[in-house]
Design a protein around this nucleic acid. Sequence first.
DNA 1: AGAAGTCACGAAAACGTTTGCGTGTTAAAA
DNA 2: TTTTAACACGCAAACGTTTTCGTGACTTCT
Lengths: 348, 348
Amino acid sequence: MRKKITLKQIARELDVSISTVSKALKNSKEISADTIQKVQAFAKLYNYRPNNIALSLKNRKTNTIGIIIPEIVHHFFSKVIRGVELVANKRGYNVIIGLSNESFSKEVINMEMLANGSIDGFILSMSKETLLQQDYHHYNETMNQGMPIVMFDRVVSEIKCDKVIVDDFNGAKNAVQKLISNNCEHIALITTKDYVSVGRLRTQGYLEALEENKITPQAELILKMDDTLDYEVHLEKLEDEIEQLFNAHKEIDGVFAVNELYALSAMKVARRMGLNVPNDIQVIGFTDGVLSKHSTPSLTTVSQHAQLMGERAADLLIDKIEKEFEAEEEQFQTIVINTELVERESTK
Amino acid sequence: MRKKITLKQIARELDVSISTVSKALKNSKEISADTIQKVQAFAKLYNYRPNNIALSLKNRKTNTIGIIIPEIVHHFFSKVIRGVELVANKRGYNVIIGLSNESFSKEVINMEMLANGSIDGFILSMSKETLLQQDYHHYNETMNQGMPIVMFDRVVSEIKCDKVIVDDFNGAKNAVQKLISNNCEHIALITTKDYVSVGRLRTQGYLEALEENKITPQAELILKMDDTLDYEVHLEKLEDEIEQLFNAHKEIDGVFAVNELYALSAMKVARRMGLNVPNDIQVIGFTDGVLSKHSTPSLTTVSQHAQLMGERAADLLIDKIEKEFEAEEEQFQTIVINTELVERESTK
DNA sequence: AGAAGTCACGAAAACGTTTGCGTGTTAAAA
DNA sequence: TTTTAACACGCAAACGTTTTCGTGACTTCT
């Protein structure tokens, strides 16, 4: 087992200086053809590779981007990561991940770990806890130190940085419009509490679609779940509440849910109550998940193009990193990713 | 926007030497209380943090581990990552990811990118293409340079390194035994081609269970899918073949599938043919996915404890990294993770 | 043959740390 | 008062690169 070889070792073996070796490997014309040949042969033999860390230190650039997400076991986020990784690799960058686990403190810790020189910039989506506490100092501190940040999906207007978001409002609106066009007259909304911006926007889209069609929104048809609960408990409670809703409002013939699981639960409850999807009740979910495609009936959803979001975020970030030197006045942009209604069997 | 501050800058401002600053920050007793106080106050004011890259270079240690997986948009792998991240963070390490996308060359490229000093060790699962080509030189080269590797799930005996694997054989055997105990007499197997070791082992488990129960395995009940196909095409073909199988063998009353999707497809086809799950036909899948839990009927599966695998792999790797100095003769271990049969609605 | 230019290479600084050791100043011991 | 010891700090090397600049040995003009 021979360890990695360095310039210094090559230099010693070949009895030349370190600089000569370095230049020879780069085919510098300062070096004679003889020496170049000799050095390169030796380097190849010993499989020399420049040490990345040394390069990073010298160049004050790591060619690595950090991505911090609340959770990785989640289709949306893993698709985003894939997108990020895709363009990052293409552009010569590595990706280092940090999971906040929806916790504020873990988010802060993780960012601090990476911000100390390990990476050139951040791509991140805020944890729910951060969203709740509305404490954004760590983002601003990081940016103040000259580290660019691109936020995606869960953003907040108070933070000035580049952003990539989904057009939640129109996505929801179009989905509900679809239900209306399919002759639904009593459309329920299953959503989360409002502190997450995306939930709020989707609710607004729902309301807007109703109003445009002269349908008076009914508060009783809106179910707001508390999604900070433990997963298992949550699911049971969710089904219970949906069942109550359906029982109290037999007239419901359409459901728009802000995520896949809510939509699936609605279908499950409906079936349990003897209702047929999509004949008695139509359902649309919001997400990019895998459940929708494989459920029975398969679920019509609003696709978020998660991978595309990752790609755009990465491009945005790398662009900013690489033209850092032009210290023109900061110019932030927000990219809005359009949603797409993927029609499957849960709607007519 | 003030950039990150360094020891040198603090030293200059306070008119002391760099070493004094460094020592003061570490509360060295070489330094007077006065100076310590002064330096620390200044450092706190400017939010000084040691530069990680410089530390990595100096210590010849990055405190980062690289993980290379074939695909991230996949519950099994993202759960593994979560496990790795969990213990890595707890033990003071970062995680950097590389996706091979099931491609040999991408795997090699990615490993080379990371092996040049960016990380202290690898955790990886082989790509299908690598498995097919049986070209393992990059693993051996990496290990020869003193970089420890821990492989998980998809492993191969030719490579000498630490491994974390699932007990595929017994997992499969127990699942099939369960079907048999539930009075299934004609059990079909839906699997992949044999080049992936895990597929082969699961098949063996299936056969073993049959034999132990004096049931003669029938080749016609075994469906081997070619999973190198494009996903969509694959799915259609899969359903077709399952349907043919079911039609040709109406006596089938149990199905064991080597992954979630195959199991789900089997249920789908069965339902389409008017069969009731689990009354007419019982189904068990192999996986840790999210589909099983939320399908209707929900699917009985062999859980792989993916997160646990990640945790064990990370511990194994970090242990090796940290006792690297004891250059005793290499000792590799293989950790076998037991599976667990999670009973749901697709079995009686 | 002396001046000028080319060639091929080495020295050294820089990136930001840590740390062993040397040193000047002061205080305590002889 | 001289020797010794403690104290508080600075120097310099090291990690592995890249790159600017300097320099000795030839070659080539005039």
